[in-house]
């Protein structure tokens, strides 16, 4: 009897094998493209319909350049270079305007209804006045 139990136990253990699962690498966050404002808040108040944000575009290219089209109060007011602090898990977006000093902001890049959004917080004027632009990539 004991022999059968031993055989079954050996058989059960021998049926297990280590399966190695290769970790899936997080895809780098690709922000290249032309982004438009779909929502704007000032000190938490929605001002999207109070001002014409429709003409503003923020363009990122694959050579780490950004371009502002039809400028608005924003993190920067000149074109320049940009970088993410980590290509796969970015927490910070830094913009380096030509001839100016670098400015950083939190990198919020949620997927809403299957579409990537870019949410940028900045203070262009008085320190008490904080703005958030929520941008969506143009097709």
């Amino acid at each position: 009897m004991n022999r059968y139990i031993l055989i079954i136990a050996v058989w059960l253990f021998s049926s297990c094998r280590v399966e190695e699962i290769a970790p899936v690498a997080e895809a780098p966050k690709n922000v290249t493209g032309s982004w438009k404002v779909i929502k704007a808040t000032r000190n938490g108040t929605d001002i999207t319909s109070a001002f014409d944000f429709t003409q503003f575009r923020l363009k990122f290219d694959s050579a780490d350049n950004y371009t502002l089209v039809n400028r608005l109060p924003f993190l920067v007011n000149k074109n320049g270079k940009y970088k993410l602090d980590d290509p796969a898990y970015p927490f910070k977006l830094t913009m380096m305007p030509d001839g100016g000093s670098a400015v950083s902001t939190s990198f919020n890049y949620p997927t809403i209804a299957g579409i990537r959004q870019l949410s940028l917080t900045f203070i262009p004027g008085c320190e008490l006045n904080s703005y958030i632009y929520t941008l969506e990539r143009e097709n």
């Binding site: 109060p73 008085c126 006045n129």
Partner: peptide, 12 residues
């Protein structure tokens, strides 16, 4: 609004 702002703010 905002009650205090600079010329680079959006002022209502």
């Amino acid at each position: 609004s905002p009650p205090k702002s600079l010329d680079n703010d959006l002022v209502t």
